[in-house]
């Protein structure tokens, strides 16, 4: 565990906390894409199939449980909570899940570390995580007034990915035989998807203006 990896995980955790804060305290999910949240739940469910069979560390198991629990409860809140669900605008959140799920599944069947159920599911989860933010980014573009918490949520998610890249660079130079093409390429694609958002996020921050993405 290096400082970049820890900072990445903590940023990821912070993004989830910001979203839970918005949902729990403000009782609103306005501007949040249910599609993206459902994809994340699927990402964690398929990636952490090893949670009860393989042990890495207490830290690892705890974080897995947190990400599984939080992602499924966020989906539950948006879909079923009496007050929160009212702020969900279905007509704006139109991205189709299967446009992302099916290509990722096919790619996972072709490109994986080993052709076993667990490894194919793991590769699928890596590919799906890379593109799971797309429905959220599309929704942001359609939202005229992006509130601060939503902006911070997406910013923290992007920052988590950028820190993971630093972690890989660090591990590549400090560990022997540390080469992971699947995670590297997907992680790079995932981080690049945030580039446009980052640009406007920093612009709005610099000029002290409300965040708005050009349509």
């Amino acid at each position: 565990m290096n400082i970049f990896r820890l900072a990445g995980d903590m940023t990821h955790l912070a993004s989830v906390l910001v979203l839970l804060l918005k949902i729990h305290t403000i009782k609103s999910c306005a501007g949040i894409s249910l599609k993206t949240q459902e994809l994340y739940a699927l990402v964690f469910a398929t990636r952490y199939l090893d949670i009860f069979t393989d042990f890495i560390s207490l830290y690892n198991t705890t974080m897995k449980l947190i990400f599984l629990g939080s992602s499924f409860s966020i989906v539950w809140y948006i879909r079923n909570h009496k007050i929160v669900s009212r702020s969900y605008d279905k007509s704006q959140d139109t991205f189709r899940h299967y446009f992302l799920i099916i290509p990722c599944l096919l790619l996972a069947l072709l490109v994986n570390e080993k052709f076993t159920f667990k490894e194919v599911m793991w590769a699928f989860s890596i590919y799906l995580e890379a593109v799971a933010i797309l429905p959220q980014l599309v929704l942001l573009q359609r939202t005229r007034n992006i509130d601060n918490l939503t902006g911070q949520y997406v910013f923290l998610l992007g920052a988590y990915r950028a820190l993971y890249i630093l972690n890989w660079i660090y591990r590549y130079f400090t560990e022997t035989h540390y080469v992971h093409w699947i995670t590297w390429v997907s992680g790079l694609v995932q981080t690049l998807l945030y580039a446009d958002f980052f640009y406007y996020y920093f612009e709005s921050w610099k000029n002290n203006k409300k965040l708005q993405l050009p349509a």
């Binding site: 069979t53 393989d54 042990f55």
Partner: peptide
Amino acid sequence: LKVVDGHDEL
């Protein structure tokens, strides 16, 4: 429970 060094990232 077995200790693995495969996918140690989250």
